[in-house]
Design a protein around this nucleic acid. Structure first.
Lengths: 332, 332
DNA sequence: ATGAAAGCGCTAACAG
DNA sequence: CTGTTAGCGCTTTCAT
């Protein structure tokens, strides 16, 4: 590994001059620059980022915290963040937190020790308190957990309203909701959207709401219970796609046909929803765009630390597939 | 951020002594150690990893190259690598290569500049040549692309044989194969396993093999063609689960019932296969274990650079689900 | 058992 | 326009 010193020697200049051409900063004669460039080329020299990081106190690394990359919602988000991160010459570090505060703190210390430049966090359990552990820009993505952070989200409330209204428009007359964990802001808003549409209906029962924890198996279990206790149900709005699939699995094992007997709509727009049979109608989020935007915002903030707090919400879009169907036996 | 100097001052010793207790290396009086520990505690001191990395030339970072984390096979692998990586106090860097050599080289340079300690690579396109670009231990995972590297794989050939034999045992009499890209070692071995079972059968036709590039849409397209040209087919062995799902989608759109008219078996054991309807019979790989083992091997090699090259292959296991079914109309 | 000091590779004053 | 030099925070001889 050639160092800046080697380059200086070959070019017959001082390391300062080499540094200047490296960073195109300060005056340097055209000819000397040429000589330096040649030396760099000749030695195939690459500056040592570690030395730079030590001097600057920044490492050109960005970390993304997700609960678990194995959850199919996150790979696309991670991909987006990595793409933007890369395009801006940062290195991308992935951290699975399992929504475990202790792991988060361990990560924060480790990243701090490596002079990470910024962090994007998807989490509902992290405390605003724990952010003080590390002194770098942080963006909250998908879920809001601290009012002091810039955020990138979607309009969960409106999306949930639309999903519920869509089911009603199809002729559904008894609609249940399988919610995510209520401590997650997105789950809470989706629940609220549903409630604001249906809670005044005379058919509505509080027991039409069950928590599926954003988890397939859990959702299947609660959906089974829901469908057994309430055979009158003809629509389910699940707070995410994974739970929507769980609900369909529950219906299938009970001999309830989707979409003929039961319409199911969910939220997210992950690929797995298309793969399911029947394919899942959903409120699609621009997942990649969200990740990309969060990364861009983070980099802006890294470059200008006193940038003001910003809140961006993407809108979601109804994607009709096979799990929902207009009811033919409406009262007429 | 407290530095080692601050600690030294508070403890009333030199930085050398602090460094000694930090690394439990060299003699240090029990009492002085106590004083230093107290100072560390009091200042909440954490050593600066960047400074350490500069001195040592190693950064305690490990990178994983995957073609694309959005492909559902890779998140579990990534998760495993990250877990092991973390347990050993390394930081995990994720790199999506899109199987693009230029991206790979760019990554290698970037990682080299950051003094990464080692790399795990899943790739079929990387040339052995390009590895010279960076002088750290490398493990090949899932696919073999250079004979000089330690590798972690599965027994693709035996798995493919078993899958094909399973279909035959079910009574299938015309079995096609949807292969992965032939430049990928795993795809090649799976194809070979299939061929070695069927190529001597009198019904076998070379046109029973089609390439689906490990890609769902592509597999769906070629499966459609396959099923249209060869209505006699009653079994398909797809080289991975994603393509197995593609094949089922193709059958569905042609009105061919899986598994009654057509049995489909695939390879991988990703979650999406369970979610599909019908759920997909497959040769399940121990994906997490493979990732974990690769990470362990890498760390062993980092700790002892002159460790000899090693080759480990896990075995795969048949998981019967709904996409395959014994034929009732056998000649009897 | 401990301290002083050199140096990892780079950048940014400061001088000239 | 270019060179000299003092660090960035840490580890490791080399003395003592």
């Amino acid at each position: 590994m050639a160092t800046i010193k080697d380059v200086a020697k070959v070019a017959g200049v001082s390391v300062a001059t080499v540094s200047r051409v490296l960073n195109s900063n300060g005056y340097v004669n055209v000819d000397t620059k040429k000589r330096v460039d040649q030396a760099i080329e000749q030695l195939n020299y690459r500056p040592n980022d570690v030395a730079r990081a030590l001097f600057k106190g920044r490492s050109k690394m960005i970390a993304l915290f997700v609960p678990d990359i194995m959850n199919p919602f996150f790979p696309e988000l991670a991909r987006a963040v990595e793409d933007i991160t890369n395009k801006n010459d940062y290195t991308f570090v992935l951290c699975n937190t399992d929504d475990n505060l202790e792991k988060v703190l361990t990560y924060m210390d480790a990243l701090q020790q490596k002079s990470v430049d910024g962090i994007i966090i998807v989490s509902s359990t992290i405390t605003a308190e724990s952010l003080k552990r590390i002194n770098v820009p942080v963006i909250a993505l998908d879920r809001i957990f601290s009012s002091e952070l810039s955020t990138v989200t979607v309009d969960n409330y409106q999306g949930a309203r639309k999903a519920t209204e869509y089911l009603i428009g199809l002729g559904c007359q008894r609609i249940a909701h399988i919610s995510g964990p209520i401590n997650a802001s997105n789950a809470k808003n989706r629940l609220q959207g549903y409630l604001d549409i249906v809670s005044d209906e005379d058919w509505f029962l509080p027991s039409y709401v069950a928590s599926g924890s954003f988890n397939l198996q859990k959702a299947k279990d609660v959906a089974t219970e829901l469908l057994m206790n309430h055979p009158e149900l003809d629509g389910i709005f699940a707070a995410n796609d994974v739970m929507g699939i769980g609900a369909m699995k529950a219906a299938e094992s009970l001999g309830i046909h989707v979409p003929n007997d039961l319409s199911v709509i969910a939220f997210d727009g992950i690929t797995m929803g298309e793969m399911a049979t029947p394919s899942l109608t959903t409120m699609e989020q621009p997942i990649y765009d969200m990740g990309a935007r969060a990364a861009e915002m983070l980099i802006e903030q890294i470059n200008d630390q006193k940038l003001s707090r910003k809140n961006e919400a993407f809108s979601v879009q109804l994607v009709e597939r096979q799990s929902t169907k207009r009811k033919r036996d409406m009262n007429e």
